[in-house]
Amino acid sequence: MGKQGNNSFMGHIRPRQIMTGALRLRATFCLGGFSFLAFLVLTITGVLLLFFYQPGVEAFVSLSELNSVLPYGGVIRSLHFWAAQMMVISVFLHMVRVVWSKAYRPLRELNWITGVVLFVLTVILDYSGYLLRGGQESGAAATIGQALFTSLPGGQALATIFFGQPSSFNGSTLNMYAWHVFILPGVLGFLQMFHFWRIRRDGGVRPL
């Protein structure tokens, strides 16, 4: 890479020098960084799970084979699960820290809104991952979500777009798979980059 001046994206995210204030643990408690780290672990383990997992009627069988037969399959699945739970918690705690330190106030309101959207997306991703487990519990959770959508005017179409046609015994569908694997993480990844860029632009400490 060429010169990392302040005008380049990398120079913006990773400047050669930083303010001493950014070194203090209390500035961020590393919570934003932990959330991003969780996202990275989820991306890596998620890609590995993609090689074996099959959405739809085969979801439960492929997951139980992955869990018990495939070498390190259970470890990768566990890493994926725990990283997801840790991401939800760290994003929430990050929000608490931002409000506590009043870092949401103008001129940073746009980044606050981005952060709230990121939190909502993280929770929806966690829910969609739960549905992909493909068992009776996921079927029950999908049924509840579907019922909530269909209670809205015109909600049947929305429910079909998001959930597909799950049964009460299996929440895993191709639609949910597409949302969980491609659409939601793609939007989340893009918004995270925007979030990091805005933190620096708004004059905040660089994210840990």
């Binding site: 997951l63 139980s64 566990s78 739970q85 829910y127 739960y130 493909g134 009776q136 029950a140």
Partner: peptide
Amino acid sequence: VEVPLDTSPKAAAVSLSKAPWVF
């Protein structure tokens, strides 16, 4: 901490009204 699998869709139906902890 082991991450359990769901109840198999082919098993006898369990009466469930369940959500992941985030919801």
